[in-house]
């Protein structure tokens, strides 16, 4: 399967958008998107880790033994997460407070491990970097959109600029946890409606096909094996 470099890059933006099409990394998507600014911060932090870990893993793909590849990937990812964490703490302390423990939790964000396993461990340096960049930008875009929707409805502002805050009482529920689930559900539904109109398959399941822990999940006899049959 040879893809052109442009295709590899744009893959993560729409066709295989990590959040809306692959449904990976739902925890940070729901947790940090209480404001558009936080979405951008989380997205950029994850993108940096994704690009760096994809780059290193693609370079080491022939060196890392098959059996210990997952622990090796996790160690590499954790290293980059620590670097990003220190940088954010030093230069963007407000973002650091807003993201809280979700910043170090990028380590267990399945998008990053999934791209390491599915792409970087099988491809050379340049495509892996482009894949990381495309996926990262796709992730950032959805996080920003979701943050903007929740901030607009829940606080009446956009990137902290007041829009309707003084005219209409904002619906604070959108800033609270239920709002996160609800807005994300609506975004997936909207992306499904668009996909359907274009004749693409709609997303009904969690991103099990792309989950690094897919095999054990299938043994657990849950929704994942049905997703596989559907394919």
């Amino acid at each position: 399967m040879k893809q052109s470099k442009w295709n590899v890059f744009t893959n993560g933006l729409l066709r295989e958008n990590p959040t809306l099409r692959l449904v990976l990394g739902t925890c940070p998507t729901l947790a940090v998107t209480t404001a558009a600014k936080n979405g951008v911060g989380m997205g950029i932090a994850a993108t940096i880790v994704l690009v760096c870990s994809n780059a290193v893993i693609s370079l080491l793909r022939n060196v890392i033994p098959e059996k210990v590849r997952i622990p090796a990937f996790i160690t590499i990812i954790a290293g980059f997460v620590s670097v990003v964490q220190m940088l954010v703490k030093a230069f963007l302390p407000t973002i650091d407070t807003a993201l809280g423990i979700y910043l170090p939790l990028i380590v267990v964000n399945c998008i990053i491990l999934a791209r390491a396993e599915m792409f970087a461990s099988k491809n050379s340096f340049v495509p892996s970097v482009l894949d990381g960049l495309g996926m990262g930008i796709g992730f950032t875009a959805v996080l920003t959109l979701m943050g903007a929707i929740r901030e607009f409805l829940g606080a009446g502002t956009l990137f902290s600029l007041p829009i309707t805050a003084k005219v209409i009482d904002p619906m604070i529920i959108f800033l609270l946890p239920p709002g996160g689930f609800f807005v994300f559900g609506m975004l997936v539904a909207a992306s499904n409606a668009i996909a359907k109109r274009r004749g693409k398959p709609i997303v009904e399941k969690m991103g099990c096909e792309n989950c690094p822990a897919k095999d054990s999940c299938e043994n657990a006899g849950n929704g994942c094996d049905e997703a596989k049959e559907a394919e």
């Binding site: 996160g180 689930f181 559900g185 609506m186 997936v188 539904a189 709609i202 997303v203 399941k205 969690m206």
Partner: peptide, 18 residues
């Protein structure tokens, strides 16, 4: 149809969280 599966599950989770 476009709400089937994941979207409706997320909305249910929203109500549960509420």
């Amino acid at each position: 149809e476009f709400m089937k599966g994941l979207p409706i599950t997320l909305v249910a989770a929203a109500l549960c969280s509420l």
